[in-house]
Design a protein around this nucleic acid. Structure first.
Lengths: 249, 249
DNA sequence: CCACATTCTTGATCTGCGTCAAAGTTTACG
DNA sequence: CGTAAACTTTGACGCAGATCAAGAATGTGG
């Protein structure tokens, strides 16, 4: 999910997504990569569903490129996004055989998968992998809890600002831009509806609040998706975090 | 946090909370228990703060008895509970030295703690512990995501019903009551305000919705805290989950 | 280049929940 | 046992965000 640690792993991983440093960054071994026989790629087009909640899931894997979402849906159709999967993020859990969420590709997506049972075996033999996975899972747990605050207590405007902050920060990390005061620029990888599902809002409210932030000079829009943030501090204030501490401490 | 797996561990643990089966349920070893020199108990009274967000945290540990909450607070005082710690639940994370949340005892609380660095060392040597911790963390992540749906998409009434369902189910598990149609009975371990903080509501709304559920015969109240659920299916419907599947599938 | 589907914006109106206020109930303590 | 503190309930009212509705912008395939 969206958080700094898993992103810095992406950096580690460099342009070599095949070697699973995301999972095995700390150990010098390449055991995972030797497991050619249980490793395979899967490609998805934007909009395709990777797996449905409740389906049998006989693999685990990580995102190589593209973006996927994890969503939960109630019978009456209300949906809540519970995670955003970025390159290097891991999906699936050892010890469970069915998917707990719908996983949907929002952009074209490449995943690198391992058949589950050999992976589990490997994990039993290789303490580093379990430890690395634990670390990543703890990061995701922190991100999920961060998001609980956003969902439970923030206003619509703050929610939008929080999401934009996170995306801006991710992009800054991915592209190694300076953290200093200069303007930041990025593309929204999500439709208004997907943003609404992430934020627990309606797409109309998302649209209105983005317009409001634009009107107030917090952001600039070029087209519907390309965002410029002239002053990151300002955006963080709008998000309800203190400028330096808080969410990104 | 509140979920079935960590609770069933409490069962495993029986009345022997000192042996950390919660962490080490699968392995036959008792390594953790041999580490007397790094293990110590801490007791807290209801209302006491175990640790403040941002404080240095040089221990990890699990709850032996009582209940604690994890909360996040914004500068302006808005607070969101992000986790409920029940007996056998684990606090603290290997690899991080400061607390990410306020941890507060809501009842009298006993925790069994380990100094962090020896624990981490042990974890490095003992794959089962890392694996068990991973499993517990994944359960917590699922619970957190479950809660994101509650916070983002459910109505006040559904939120209350969801919380009551979870508490009822936990109690049923702890006391090994039958899952069948009979009435369930339990005490609320939280004030209205704490419930509000968990649900992203105000305490007034919590109070009103509890009154409404009482009026509609979904629950019965004796005093302010003792709840009877005549028909669990009904409560689950009110929570917006299908009666059998959904949240507790 | 045009038709048609998506996605997005904006407006008008409605409503669930928050806010403010007051009083009732339970618990704790001197 | 009596008084204060903490917790809970209930009411009146307002507002943030949902809902309903209509277009505008953008993209896509023929």
């Amino acid at each position: 999910m969206l958080n700094e640690r898993s992103l810095s792993v992406t950096q580690d991983c460099g342009d070599c997504p095949i070697r699973h440093r995301a999972v095995c960054a700390r150990c010098e071994s390449d055991e995972l990569d030797r497991l050619e026989e249980i490793k395979y790629y899967r490609k998805f087009e934007a909009g395709q569903t990777v797996i449905w909640s409740g389906d049998k899931m006989d693999f685990v894997g990580s995102v190589v490129s593209g973006i996927a979402t994890l969503t939960q849906t109630m019978e009456d159709g209300r949906t809540q996004m519970v995670g955003l999967l970025l390159p290097s993020d891991f999906v699936g859990r050892p010890g469970r055989s069915t998917a707990a969420y719908d996983v949907v590709a929002t952009t074209d997506l490449v995943m690198c998968c391992f058949r589950k049972s050999p992976f589990e075996e490997l994990m039993g033999r290789t303490p580093h992998i379990a430890q690395r996975l634990l670390e990543m899972t703890l990061d995701e747990l922190d991100a999920a809890r961060e998001w609980m605050l956003v969902l439970g207590r923030k206003t619509a405007r703050e929610k939008i600002a929080s999401l934009l902050s996170i995306i801006a920060r991710r992009d800054a990390t991915l592209h190694l831009k300076s953290g200093g005061g200069g303007p930041l620029t990025f593309d929204l990888p999500l439709t208004r509806e997907a943003m609404a599902d992430y934020l627990g809002l309606t797409l109309e409210t998302v649209s209105r609040q983005i317009s409001a932030l634009k009107k107030d000079g917090v952001i600039t829009l070029e087209g519907k998706r390309h965002v410029t943030v002239p002053d990151m501090e300002r955006l963080l204030e709008e998000a309800g975090d203190d400028a330096d501490g808080g969410m990104f401490a």
